[in-house]
Write a protein that binds this DNA or RNA. Sequence first.
DNA 1: CTGAAAGCGCTTACAG
DNA 2: CTGAAAGCGCTTACAG
Lengths: 346, 346
Amino acid sequence: MKPPGGRTPVMADVARLAGVSHQTVSRVVNGHPNVREETVLRVRDAIEELGYHRNSTARALVTRRTNVLGVIAFDPTLFGPAQTLAGIERAAREAGYFLSMVSLDDVSPEGVVAAADYLIQQSVEGCVAIAPQRALVEALAALPGPGPLVAVEGGEGSGLPVVCVDQAQGAHDAVRHLLDLGHTTVHHVEGDPLWLESAARVVGWRRALEEAGAPVPEPLQGDWSPRSGYELGLALVRRRASGERVTAIFVGNDQMAIGVLRALHEADLHVPGDVSVVGFDDIPEAEYLTPSLTTVHQDFAQVGRESLALLLAEIAREGSADPAGAARRVVPARLRVRGSSGPPPP
Amino acid sequence: MKPPGGRTPVMADVARLAGVSHQTVSRVVNGHPNVREETVLRVRDAIEELGYHRNSTARALVTRRTNVLGVIAFDPTLFGPAQTLAGIERAAREAGYFLSMVSLDDVSPEGVVAAADYLIQQSVEGCVAIAPQRALVEALAALPGPGPLVAVEGGEGSGLPVVCVDQAQGAHDAVRHLLDLGHTTVHHVEGDPLWLESAARVVGWRRALEEAGAPVPEPLQGDWSPRSGYELGLALVRRRASGERVTAIFVGNDQMAIGVLRALHEADLHVPGDVSVVGFDDIPEAEYLTPSLTTVHQDFAQVGRESLALLLAEIAREGSADPAGAARRVVPARLRVRGSSGPPPP
DNA sequence: CTGAAAGCGCTTACAG
DNA sequence: CTGAAAGCGCTTACAG
C-alpha cells in the first residue's frame, strides 16, 4: 500500500493510513509521551507498511539542527589521517550524528576557505579538522567558521580546541630508550618540517638529548615518504663513512624508517648490530619488517573519540554563557620495543 | 551590518538590504538570467556584507535534491579502502556533491541495513559501497536501497553496477612474470577468502598456471595481515624443508608479503636467490623494502573517479525510460617489477 | 491524549 | 526584469 503515484511516503500518508493527524505521527516518530498505546501501535504499523522514513531535510529546516558534523582532512590517503578519520566516523555515528567529509588538496588559505564554505553550505553543526600543518591551523582559526571547530594535531597557540597525541613524549621515550641502551647520541630523520607533528617530535628528541647531556646533531628533514627516508639514510651512511659516529637513528615515521633500513642494508650495516633504528606510528607491518621495527604507537581511535567528545562539548557550550578557553586533550604515545634497537657496537 | 538579533542571515535579510524581493536574491544566487546587471551587483554586495550563505536544507526541501551522496566503507583503516574512499571524496567534490560517509563494523545483513538506513535518513541521492565481500554485496543488492547504488569491487552476478580493478589480470600478470623467469610453478598465499578481491586473484593465479601447464599447488588462506603472511610463510618454509620445491610465491597483498619475506629471512632463504616473492597493491613502502618488492599496482584514484561517474550516470538514468543493465567498469592493474623476483635457483 | 495553525528558508510557477 | 503566492515536509506552541 504505497502512497498514490509511487511517491516516497510522507508523514501525511502515514497519518491517513493510521487514521490520525500528522502531528500524532510526529509524536510517535519522536518518541514523545502522551500518545495512547493503541495509537502508537497503529502508527507504527502504518510506518512499517509504507516503508516510511522521516525526511531529515524537513526536520532540519524547522529544528535548525542538521545533525551533520563535518570533517576536513588534509590528505586522507596517508596512514595517520586515514586512521583518525575512521575513528572520527565511528565516534560520530555512535553519537547519533551524520558525517560529511571534505579533503583538502593543499593548505592554501583559499583551499581552506573553500572547504569551510563547503561545510557551511551543508549547515554542519560543527566540525573537526585533521590539521597537521601550521598554515592550515592558522587559516582555520581565522575563519568565520562553520560552527564550533576542533583541530586534531593542531599544535598550540591557535586558540582552537585541540586533540593530539603527545608527540614530544613519544619522541622523548624513543630517544631515552636508545640512550639507555648505551648510545652516546641519537640522530634524527624528521618528517615534513611543515607538519606540527614533525616539529613536536623534534622537540621531544632534542629535549631527551639535552636532558642526558648528549650532543644534538642537526636533524635531517624529510617529507614522510619512504623515498626521503632512503635518501637521508644514504646521507647518514656517508657521514658515518667520513668518521662521524652514527649508531642510533630516530626516524619521524615508520615509512621513512623503512627507507632508512634500506639505505643501511645497502651499505652493509647491520640493524641493530651497527646502527639502531626507531620509527614512529606503529604501522601494521612494523612488527614484521626485518628486523622488526621498534616504534612509537599512536592510538588513532582514541584521538577520534576524544575529538568528537570535545566537539560535542563545544557545541553544547555554544550559546550558553560558559567561558571559551581553548581545551586541549592529549593522548599518550606508547613506545613499542622490537628488534631494530639494541646496544651500540663497542 | 548583521541581521538584527545576530541570527544567521537569510535570503530575506539580503533582499531587505539590497532593496529587492527575496525571489530576486534567489535568482542571483542561482545564476538565473533576466536580472538587471545593476540589481545583480547590489544583491552581491548585500550577500558579501552580510556573509550570507544559502541554506541548503531549505533548498533541498523544495528541490527534493539534497546534493548529498553516500559512501559505505567496510573497513576504512585498511589501505585499499582508504585510498578508494579518498578517490571517491575528491570525485564527488569535483562533481559538486557533498559526501556522507558511514563505515560498517561487520558485514552482517543487520549492519548493512543499519548503514543503509543511516544514509536513507539523510536522503542521499545515491551511494557507492566499498563492498569487498560477497555477503556484503548480497545484503546491499537485497536492499530497498538509498537510491542508485554502485558497488566498488562488488564482484559479478549481484545485478549491481560495479567498478573494480582487474584483479584476475593483475594476478595473472604477476604469475606469468614468475613463470617467464623460469619458475616451474608459483605458490599462492591468498588474502581473506571471504573477500571478492582475494577470490579474483586466486582465479588469475590459477589460470596463469593452467595456461602454462604448470602444477597448481593448494593456495594458503590468510587474512591480509602481515601476521598471517608471516605464519603462512613459515608453513611454506616447512614444506620446502620437507622436499617440496617452492621457488616463487605470489602473495595476495603487500602487507602479507612483508610477513612472508620475514619468514623466509628467518629460515635463511634469500629473496630472490632462493625464493621469489610478488605482492599486490603497491603500497608506498613496497619500493623501499629490502629487497624492493615486485608487486601489482592498483589505481585507486581511478576507481574512485569511475565509481562516481557510474553513480552519476545511474542517478541520471533514474526515472528515465532507459534500460537498467548492470554496468561494469574495470580498471587495469599494472605489474611493477622490482628486486624481489628473479630466476629460480638451479 | 489529539488536532488545527503557523512557520522554518528556500524555489517554482504565475503575474505583471 | 521583478514581485506576490504557494508549498516542500516537518516541529512547535497552542487549543481543546
